[in-house]
Lab assay of single mutants.
Amino acid sequence: SKIRITWGDKTWEWDGDDEEVWKRILEWARNLGDEELWRHVKEWVDK
Results as ranks from 00 to 15, higher is better:
Ser1Tyr: 12
Ser1Gly: 15
Lys2Leu: 08
Ile3Asn: 02
Ile3Arg: 02
Ile3Cys: 03
Ile3Tyr: 02
Ile5Tyr: 05
Ile5Glu: 00
Ile5Leu: 14
Thr6Ala: 06
Thr6Ile: 12
Trp7Tyr: 10
Gly8Gln: 10
Asp9Arg: 01
Asp9Leu: 01
Asp9Ser: 04
Asp9Val: 02
Lys10Arg: 12
Lys10Gly: 05
Lys10His: 10
Thr11Asn: 06
Thr11Ser: 12
Thr11Arg: 03
Trp12Tyr: 15
Trp12His: 06
Glu13Met: 04
Glu13Ile: 09
Glu13Gln: 05
Glu13Ser: 05
Glu13Phe: 05
Trp14Glu: 01
Trp14Leu: 04
Trp14Asp: 01
Asp15Ile: 11
Asp15Val: 11
Asp15Trp: 07
Gly16Asn: 14
Gly16Asp: 08
Gly16His: 15
Gly16Phe: 14
Gly16Ser: 14
Gly16Thr: 13
Asp17Val: 07
Asp17Asn: 14
Asp17Thr: 12
Asp17Pro: 11
Asp17Tyr: 08
Asp18Trp: 15
Asp18Ala: 12
Asp18Thr: 15
Asp18Cys: 03
Glu19Cys: 03
Glu19Phe: 13
Glu20Trp: 11
Glu20Ser: 15
Glu20Thr: 14
Glu20Ile: 10
Glu20Gln: 14
Glu20Met: 13
Val21His: 02
Val21Ala: 06
Val21Cys: 03
Val21Asn: 05
Val21Ile: 10
Val21Thr: 15
Val21Trp: 04
Trp22Gly: 03
Trp22Val: 05
Trp22Ser: 03
Lys23Tyr: 13
Arg24Thr: 12
Arg24Asp: 06
Arg24Gly: 08
Arg24Leu: 15
Arg24Cys: 07
Ile25Phe: 03
Ile25Thr: 01
Ile25Ser: 00
Ile25Met: 06
Leu26Arg: 03
Leu26Gln: 06
Leu26Asp: 02
Leu26Cys: 07
Leu26Lys: 05
Glu27Asp: 12
Glu27Ala: 11
Glu27Ile: 12
Trp28Leu: 02
Trp28Arg: 00
Ala29Phe: 05
Ala29Gly: 03
Ala29Met: 03
Ala29Leu: 03
Ala29Ile: 03
Ala29His: 01
Arg30Glu: 07
Leu32Phe: 15
Leu32Val: 15
Gly33Pro: 04
Gly33Ala: 08
Gly33Asn: 11
Glu35Tyr: 07
Glu35Lys: 07
Glu35Cys: 08
Glu35Thr: 05
Glu36Ser: 08
Glu36Arg: 04
Leu37Gly: 01
Trp38Pro: 01
Trp38Met: 14
Trp38Leu: 14
Trp38Val: 09
Arg39His: 08
Arg39Leu: 12
Arg39Gln: 13
His40Trp: 15
His40Val: 10
His40Gln: 14
Val41Phe: 04
Val41Ala: 02
Val41Trp: 02
Val41Arg: 00
Val41Lys: 00
Lys42Leu: 13
Lys42Thr: 13
Lys42Arg: 12
Glu43Asn: 12
Glu43Ser: 09
Glu43Leu: 06
Glu43Trp: 08
Glu43His: 09
Trp44Ile: 15
Trp44Thr: 05
Trp44Met: 12
Trp44Leu: 15
Trp44Asn: 02
Trp44Phe: 15
Val45Cys: 11
Val45Asn: 05
Asp46Arg: 04
Asp46Phe: 05
Asp46Gly: 06
Asp46Ile: 07
Asp46Val: 06
Asp46His: 05
Asp46Lys: 09
Lys47Ile: 14
